[in-house]
């Protein structure tokens, strides 16, 4: 239902997203994991046709069969909300503080779907019920500041669902929320994807949230997808050195006392200083000669899984010989 092939985004200083490939079918839940500077948010924006001015986008984005690569703003506007919708980290800033939340949710129903105000209100109420908003009838006439963070995020989800999108992009939707609220929001997203047969692209730096929300996982570093596969499988047996390092650096619930954590040396370089070849070279610790200059191609690690690393290719060849 959404298929991305060879998606690259380049700024004046150089490429900031390189050759991204992904697909999300109806009802599928794909996680995108990465740290600051990985390009994960830019990827989400590009799937909404909202890449900032001054960046050059190439590649194919097929949404529901329609090629959106190179599409103009008018074409994206027809698609947004109805086919693809997005929710963000900060539910407060995404809602108009001066409007009742019921009106905010009813507006696209009137504008895009041509519903009467009465019918739009009924649909908004149904959406509030579906997204588990407490006291939905009463909430319709409240303002954002009267709601808790978790309830606001549910309103945003209701708004995103208003025109029955086929893909929901959630960019760090739980980062600003308390743990138990975040837990309930991720459960809600999983339920909605199942019941509506809606695709979910769940972007987060929180591996625990991604692990309980998604079936497949994409790991990004420096604008490249470095590894992808079944979520449980990637977390159990990561193949790319960056994924290995990221999982090792993650504090463990089972530590039970002071324990030094394995670290990835250094920090993510600014985009213009990223190595041309493997983006992770310079921090990897296992490099071979070609890593800095030659871009590694994906190597299959399991059915439907791959990692882009020269070491894996060398190892695969060694095993085959």
């Amino acid at each position: 239902m959404i298929e991305v092939e060879g998606l690259s985004i380049t700024s004046a200083a150089g490429p900031i997203l390189r050759d991204v490939r992904l697909h999300v079918a109806a009802g599928e839940r794909l996680g995108v994991v990465g740290e600051s500077g990985s390009g994960k948010t830019l990827l989400a924006m590009s799937l909404m046709g909202m890449v900032p001015d001054g960046l050059h986008v190439t590649g194919s984005i097929r949404i529901d069969g329609a090629e959106m690569g190179g599409a103009d703003e008018a074409a994206w506007r027809r698609l947004r909300a109805r086919r693809v919708a997005m929710i963000f980290q900060e539910p407060m800033s995404a809602l108009n503080p001066l409007r009742r939340v019921g009106d905010t949710v009813a507006e696209p129903l009137i504008r895009h779907l041509g519903l009467s105000p009465r019918a739009a209100r009924d649909k908004a109420l149904a959406l509030f019920e579906e997204t588990g908003i407490l006291g939905p009838e009463r909430r319709l006439s409240q303002y954002p500041h009267q709601l808790s963070g978790g309830q606001r995020q549910r309103v945003l989800i209701a708004l995103a669902l208003a025109c029955d999108p086929e893909l929901l992009i959630a960019d760090e939707p739980t980062t600003a929320l308390d743990a138990n609220v975040a837990l309930r929001i991720t459960r809600l997203l999983v339920r909605l994807a199942r019941e509506r047969r809606m695709g979910l692209l769940f972007i987060s730096h929180d591996l625990a949230a991604v692990s309980r929300t998604t079936e497949r996982l994409m790991v990004m570093y420096g604008g490249d997808v470095v590894e992808t596969g079944a979520t449980a499988e990637v977390l159990r047996a990561p193949a790319h050195p960056y994924t290995v390092g990221l999982l090792a650096a993650r504090p463990s619930l089972a530590a039970h006392g002071k324990r030094r954590l394995p670290t990835i040396p250094g920090s993510v370089p600014p985009p213009q200083e990223l190595p041309r070849g493997c983006r992770f070279s310079g921090r990897c610790g296992q490099e071979i000669a070609r890593c800095a200059d030659e871009r590694p191609q994906p190597v299959a690690t399991a059915p439907g899984s791959w990692a882009a690393c020269h070491l894996l290719r060398a190892r695969a060849k060694g095993a085959g010989a």
């Binding site: 730096h205 591996l207 650096a249 030094r260 990835i264 920090s267």
Partner: peptide, 14 residues
């Protein structure tokens, strides 16, 4: 902080 930076800072505190 990002996970990899977080690990560095936790080690520093220890």
């Amino acid at each position: 902080l990002d996970v990899s930076v977080q690990a560095q800072i936790l080690n520093l505190l220890m």
